[in-house]
């Protein structure tokens, strides 16, 4: 137990380093770009309009309902995917620090997750703008449930990021493997379709899918609904397991990281 609590103590000691990294990463991400941070808003917006229009035309869907629905699922999914993706080289990229300075390695996956999380917040702002135009009647106090939802998805992605960072350090095959698995889950999770479209026969596809629950606690409040208590229970359970596994892995690898780089 002392080992795991040292994990959080280390993060606290290095908090200024973390803030500094995240601030600079965000700034350098859009360096020399004219629109800068607006891209965080434009990209998800344009994607939803493109995919939304294709579906509306091909499958005769109501754009007003369909675009927000898609957008609400796509944003959190992009966050999970991109933070897992960028964390695969969290330690590898930090070689210069880990091999010569006394900085705690747990800072580095969190750095990636924080940067992507801030992008998620931007894209959620974009979502609200679109939603306010298309369906203002759905705005209400229920939407505040986005706060616990974001907390859950943040901790979940952080856990996943730590697993990715450690796994990829030991076996570099992890990164392409993860990309493939995430692509598969993109289609297995109701994002570009609705759960009801799967029918009773394939309902298990999403019911057994951890990502479905994690996405749902963000997606529902975004649209103005409240997820069921069961969904919360499952989502929190999965999150705790994934996060604990991440912390244990990083701790177990703590003194091997510098040798593996």
């Amino acid at each position: 137990m002392t080992k795991q609590s040292g994990y959080f103590k280390g993060l606290w000691e290095n908090r200024y380093i973390l803030f500094s990294f995240v601030g600079r990463d965000l700034r350098s991400k859009y360096r020399r770009s004219l629109l800068g941070v607006l891209w965080s808003i434009i990209t998800p917006l344009a994607l939803s309009v493109i995919i939304g229009s294709v579906y509306a035309i091909l499958f005769h869907r109501d754009v007003k309902i369909w675009i927000p629905m898609l957008f609400a699922g796509l944003n959190p999914w992009t966050f999970i995917r991109s933070s897992a993706e960028s964390s695969t080289n969290a330690f590898i990229q930090a070689e210069g620090y880990l091999k010569q300075l006394r900085v705690h390695p747990q800072v580095f996956p969190l750095r990636k997750v924080c940067v992507d999380f801030i992008n998620l917040l931007y894209s959620i702002m974009a979502f609200y703008v679109v939603y306010l135009v298309l369906q203002p009647q759905n705005f209400g106090p229920e939407m505040l449930m986005i706060v616990p939802g974001l907390l859950i998805i943040f901790v979940f992605s952080w856990g996943l990021a730590q697993i990715a960072a450690v796994a990829n350090l030991f076996v570099r095959d992890y990164q392409p493997f993860q990309t493939l698995v995430m692509q598969a889950f993109f289609y297995l999770t109701p994002i570009i379709y609705q759960p009801s479209q799967l029918g009773e026969r394939f309902a298990l596809v999403y019911r057994l899918n951890p990502f479905y629950y994690i996405l749902d606690v963000v997606k529902q409040p975004l649209l103005g609904g409240i997820p069921s208590a069961d969904t919360y229970l499952v989502a929190v359970g999965i999150t705790l397991v994934v996060f604990a596994l991440g912390v244990v892995l990083v701790n177990a690898a703590r003194w091997k990281i510098a040798f593996k780089l």
């Binding site: 500094s20 600079r24 350098s28 360096r31 070689e95 210069g96 620090y97 091999k99 010569q100 300075l101």
Partner: peptide
Amino acid sequence: NMFELSMGFEQEQTGWDNMYLRGLM
């Protein structure tokens, strides 16, 4: 400490930023 010298820098950041970061570390 100073070991490998070109290591432990954020290549894209300025000298000032790196000085600040190294100080924190």
